[in-house]
């Protein structure tokens, strides 16, 4: 019988060291730098000196950049677009991913060739955004292009349409591309989640005579909650940072209909005036929005398991202490 004090807490710290060190070495400086310049007058190429903002009278005026950005109509437009584009691609994305997950994990009906389907459905995520953007640009070409040709052949329109000038078509296409590039990814995450569920739960349900639909909604979905939280939070973060496709597809057009907040940040910093301070302030605002939305998501999908786990660990710690004391 070993007589050792069994407090395992130190392993929590030890196992976190690599993460913390790598973060401190490579990411801390860039992040702090980004956060700080949002409050300064840093703009222009190669400028190294910067000062915190002051009013004309010399008082500190730390939030000057934030005021400017919030009053910037392009910024508010970009926020609005980002939310529209994210919603329009996320709802179909998660629905389709859930549907496919249900199909591919159905224990009564093994979809033949599902291995191949899973692989193929993820494939749009492998191609670079640039390639996809070019492809869709050509598809919607004007005055000649496959979509125009097809619609004209089907007599839906009598002359070629310049789709790149239609706000909602442009938004629709951007959302579709995002949906199409990511639903396979989401599906794989969800399937991995289902595979982590203890099969005996399904077996028990089957013995009780549950239908596949019931099993999916009563067992699979509730147990997928932790993974769903991950999907929601990361895709919200990814969605609010959407950049490649709207940038490469129509460069934010037409008339700023597809400009996103990340594009706005990028343009402030890199399109000629090097307004690093404003770009940073806009980043911080977006960061704030993401945090608020994440907290809401965490509240809704309340970490029930986390609460249970905390209780378990606490009980364990107490038990360990008792063992040491006795």
């Amino acid at each position: 019988m070993r007589k050792k004090s069994v407090s395992y807490a130190k392993y929590g710290y030890i196992f976190s060291i690599p993460f913390v060190v790598a973060f401190l070495v490579f990411s801390l400086y860039p992040i702090v730098y980004t956060l700080v310049i949002g409050f300064t007058d840093l703009r222009g190429l190669g400028v190294k000196e910067y000062h915190f903002l002051r009013t004309a009278e010399g008082n500190l005026d730390l939030f000057g950049n934030f005021r400017t950005v919030l009053n910037n109509k392009t910024f508010t437009t970009s926020l609005k677009n980002t939310i529209i584009l994210w919603t329009a691609n996320f709802i179909p994305q998660i629905s389709m991913a859930l549907l496919l997950t249900a199909w591919f994990t159905d224990r009564n009906f093994k979809v033949k060739g599902q291995g191949a389907y899973k692989i193929l459905i993820y494939m749009p995520n492998i191609i670079t955004a640039a390639t996809i953007a070019i492809l869709f640009n050509s598809l919607f070409g004007y005055p000649k292009g496959p979509v125009n040709d097809l619609l004209m052949k089907l007599k839906c329109i009598d002359g070629p349409r310049n789709f790149s000038l239609q706000r909602w078509t442009a938004r629709g296409v951007v959302s579709f591309i995002q949906f199409w590039m990511w639903y396979g990814n989401t599906m794989i995450v969800l399937i991995a989640g289902v595979l982590g569920i203890n099969p005996s739960l399904f077996e028990a349900a089957e013995i009780d005579g549950a239908t596949p639909t019931q099993i999916f909604f009563r067992i699979t979905l509730p147990l997928l909650r932790t993974i769903l939280l991950y999907v929601l939070v990361t895709s919200m973060i990814g969605g609010l940072q959407m950049f490649d496709i709207p940038k490469l597809f129509l460069n934010g057009g037409p008339d700023q209909a597809t400009i996103t907040s990340s594009m706005f940040i990028h343009e402030q910093a890199f399109s000629g005036s090097y307004l690093y301070n404003r770009a940073s302030a806009a980043s911080i605002i977006v960061f704030g929005i993401i945090i608020v939305l994440s907290i809401i998501l965490f509240q809704i999908l309340k970490d029930k398991d986390e609460v249970a786990r905390r209780k378990y660990l606490r009980a364990q710690r107490k038990a360990a202490r008792r063992r040491v004391n006795s």
Partner: peptide, 10 residues
């Protein structure tokens, strides 16, 4: 003019 002002501060 507005877009140029908002993007480039000109």
């Amino acid at each position: 003019k507005r877009m140029v002002f908002e993007t480039l501060d000109l």
